[in-house]
Each structure stands twice: as structure tokens, then as C-alpha cells.
Design a protein around this nucleic acid. Structure first.
Lengths: 161, 161
DNA sequence: CTGCGTCACTTGAAGCGTCAAGTGATCGGT
DNA sequence: ACCGATCACTTGACGCTTCAAGTGACGCAG
């Protein structure tokens, strides 16, 4: 805006960015609101429960869980403490290596997830999948992978051709 | 997961959703981090300054500003108080109707924005525009508009064919 | 012109996330 | 066998957002 003319956005890029950035703000807010109202969980808490339910023994190390839920270890620690308070999760030190902590989904936590999942999936479907053509859904996957790849080259396999 | 088989996601939808939802979390975090480090602003504060700088007289009503910055009035009120503390913005009651409050960008706020904008735009470009093909950028616009349209039918003009 | 409702905010408290510092377990070199 | 470094968390304080309640200005019915 002042220095030697930085590469600005073209008009069409700007249009795309306006729509995209608004969506980037509003879609997570809408998904969070649905989960909060219907299940009393936020997106991150839901992801934690979902990741645990898919894991063998419904158990994962905190550090693995943090990666799967796309959050920091610190955030996870606070959240697991909360979820433990609700009886959805238990923590126990790993017997093999005392540095690790295993988080495991309780039966109550599993039921909570099973109750919340259909509504959440339905909401994802109605906000994202239903309005898009099948090719757009696939494009969205490729676009997301490319953007992820730039931020974290190791994470996203370069399946995005 | 338990009740009469809700419409689940297909394998390809699930792949798309995994990539998309990870991107939905990580891209805003990356953009926020850049703004915070380089300018000491978050995305919302930046949007507030940017919206004001584009407005006639560099002035907007709080309620208009809230819509442009995609946030609640309450959030805006707190943020404008902060920005006022830094001298980037001033507030004054609207002379015509005492219920309205006008927020206006100070010269200092304008300079702050002018200093921050190139780096921010460059980051948007490198994370979003550069990794995508031109057709993908346009697809991203259409996809975003469709998703926005479902959440808020009035807002997004149905330009998404 | 007076009260009641509405509008456009503002405020305070509570919740959630981040950051930096702390804790305890284990590894690796000597 | 010891001691410092590293690892895997945990914790507390602080900052930002949200939510609900409050404030003051204006519109309107009687």
C-alpha cells in the first residue's frame, strides 16, 4: 500500500478472496454453533471424542490425539481435563513409558459421541456437500490439499497432482 | 452411528471433508499468526481497519462495520475500544441520531494499516493464490459462494450459477 | 407530552485458547 | 551409576470472544 508496489491481488483474485475469507469465518462458526446447541460440545471436543472412538482400544496418546484433532498439546490437555470432568474420557499414564499419557474414551463418552454424530454429519452434509456438485467436492479436496501442503509440506501427501 | 442410519458421508466425501476441515482450521491460524507477529493485530482488527479505510470519510457506523468485518456488535465494541486505546480509531456519536456511533480511522490507524497490508496480502497470496491454478481460484470463489448462500441466503448473490 | 417499546450499542463476567514456565520420567554420555 | 538434556505433558496467567444484562436515545400510541 506504500512500499515499492507489492504484488497486489487482481480483481478476480480479490473476488475469490472475499468470498473465501467470509466462508472461512462463517462456516466454522456455524458448525460450532450446531454442535454447541445440540451436543454442548465444540468442534475440538467433538474431534477429540471422534478420534478416540476410531482408535484401537478407543485409546490414544495425548500427543497423537493432539495431531489428529489439529490442536496444540496444551489445548488438548485443558480440553481433556474438561472432558474428564464430564466423564467422557479417562487419562492414565502409559505403563511402558511414564512420560506418555493415554487418553481413553469411556462408555459414556462413546454414547455422547454416538448421540452427537448424526446431527453433526447431517449439518456438514447440508452446509458443504449438498450445495456442491460432485466435481466441486473433489476440487475442494484438491484445493485444500494444496493449501495444506504449502503450510505444512510433510503433512499433505502431494496427491494434489 | 446408532439411530436409523443417518445419511453418512461416502468415502470420497469423507476424504474431501478431512482435507477441507483441516484447512479450515489451519489457514486462519496461519494468517492470524502472520498478522500478529508482523503487525500485532489479529485478523478481525485488521478487517476493521481495512473496512474503515475503504469507507467514505474513513468512517462507518458500528453496526455496518460489524457486518463488513463478519463479527458481532459486541465483539466489535470491545475491539474498537482496544483500537481506540492504540490511537488507530476514534468513536463519536452520530449527530443525526444519538443511537448510532460512528467509528473513524485516524491518520495513525491508516498508517498502521498501510504498513501491515503488503505483508498480509503477500501471505494470502503465497498460501492461497500461488498454490492454486487460476481455474481453481475461480472454483474456490464459486464453492465459497454456494456454502455462504446456504448459511445466509440473502448475503451471497446467487452468482454461483 | 408521557410512558413503553425498540434500537444501537456497551459492559462485565465467564469460558476457551495461547504462551511461557514448570514437572516428572527417561535417555545418553561419561 | 550419575547428571544433564530431552521428552511428554501440565499448569497458571493473560487475552480475546461470547453471552446476557444494562444503558441511553429515539419512535410512537394515547
Amino acid at each position: 500500500m506504500n512500499k515499492d508496489e507489492p504484488r497486489w491481488l487482481s480483481a478476480s483474485e480479490l473476488d475469490a478472496w472475499k468470498a473465501f475469507s467470509a466462508m472461512l469465518i462463517k462456516l466454522p462458526a456455524a458448525l460450532d454453533a450446531q454442535l454447541r446447541n445440540d451436543a454442548g460440545l465444540n468442534q475440538f471436543e467433538y474431534l477429540v471424542l471422534a478420534a478416540l472412538s476410531d482408535a484401537p482400544e478407543r485409546t490414544l496418546r495425548m500427543s497423537e490425539l493432539a495431531v489428529l484433532a489439529n490442536g496444540s498439546l496444551s489445548r488438548l490437555s485443558h480440553v481433556v481435563k474438561r472432558l474428564e470432568g464430564h466423564g467422557y474420557v479417562r487419562r492414565e499414564p502409559c505403563p511402558d513409558d511414564g512420560r506418555y499419557t493415554n487418553a481413553l474414551l469411556t462408555e459414556q463418552g462413546y454414547r455422547k459421541l454416538a448421540d452427537s454424530a448424526p446431527g453433526h454429519v447431517q449439518h456438514v452434509r447440508s452446509l458443504v456437500m449438498d450445495p456442491l456438485e460432485p466435481e466441486q467436492i473433489d476440487q475442494l479436496r484438491l484445493i485444500s490439499l494444496r493449501i495444506l501442503h504449502v503450510m505444512d509440506p510433510d503433512l499433505a501427501w502431494p496427491d494434489c497432482h
